[in-house]
């Protein structure tokens, strides 16, 4: 049956996951895994661990750039709206002030820059992180509910070029975990 495509009843393996009891152990294991040549892996922790992204080789995030673009868009929208309304569409003499009273337009320009910038920051964080996503294979892992409380996990995914059920399992066990187990894809 399995020879004809993917109609197998056996669930596929997502990867191997190791649980550690503190952030330092996780950090060391991640460094070792990167050094051993593993690349497709992820670490899960209840709090941000500094140095972990450098250890696993995740360097750049575009969140700040997108936020900057959002902020500039907001400022342009804010000023553009006021200019259009006060100079072009509804050029009305108010207290003898010039139609383009740009200093008075600054507060709203500023507020919209902040507003759009924050939306861009939030939106890009969620989009780049692929959230909301309620079904992630890693939630199938044993004791994974601890990842949001006090469990520190390193998961080497089966898509990694070096992945080998036996060798990877042995490697993870050498890193001093609490437990190593297989994670099934759903």
């Amino acid at each position: 049956m399995a020879e004809y495509g993917h109609h197998t009843e056996e669930p596929t393996v997502y990867g191997l996951i190791a649980e550690f009891d503190d952030s330092d152990n996780l950090l060391h294991a991640a460094e070792a895994a990167y050094k051993a040549g593993y690349r497709t892996m992820d670490a899960y922790s209840p709090l941000p661990i500094h140095g972990l992204s450098e250890a696993i080789g995740f360097k750049k995030t575009y969140v700040s750039l997108i936020t900057l673009i959002g902020g500039i868009t907001g400022a342009a929208t804010g000023f553009g709206m006021q200019y259009f309304a006060s100079v072009i569409h509804y050029d009305y003499d108010i207290g003898g002030k010039p139609f383009n009273s740009w200093p008075s337009f600054m507060p709203i320009t500023f507020e919209l820059a902040i507003l759009f910038g924050a939306f861009a920051a939030l939106g890009s964080m969620l989009a780049l992180n692929g959230l909301p996503r309620h079904h992630h294979p890693v939630f199938n892992a044993k004791r994974f509910e601890r990842a949001s409380s006090d469990g520190f996990f390193l998961c080497i995914e089966s898509e990694d070029l070096q992945y080998d059920t036996e060798a990877t399992k042995k490697f993870l066990e050498e890193q001093g975990p609490v437990e190593v187990s297989e994670v099934l894809d759903d």
Binding site: S45, P48, L52, M125, L128, H134, V138, F139
Partner: peptide, 24 residues
């Protein structure tokens, strides 16, 4: 939102937190 504590999400999360603080 299906938060799982992946280090990638944490990195972006921290950047966003800093940016929001800088905007606020």
């Amino acid at each position: 939102f299906g938060w799982n504590g992946s280090y990638r999400t944490w990195v972006r999360y921290e950047v966003v937190y800093l940016l929001l603080a800088a905007l606020a």
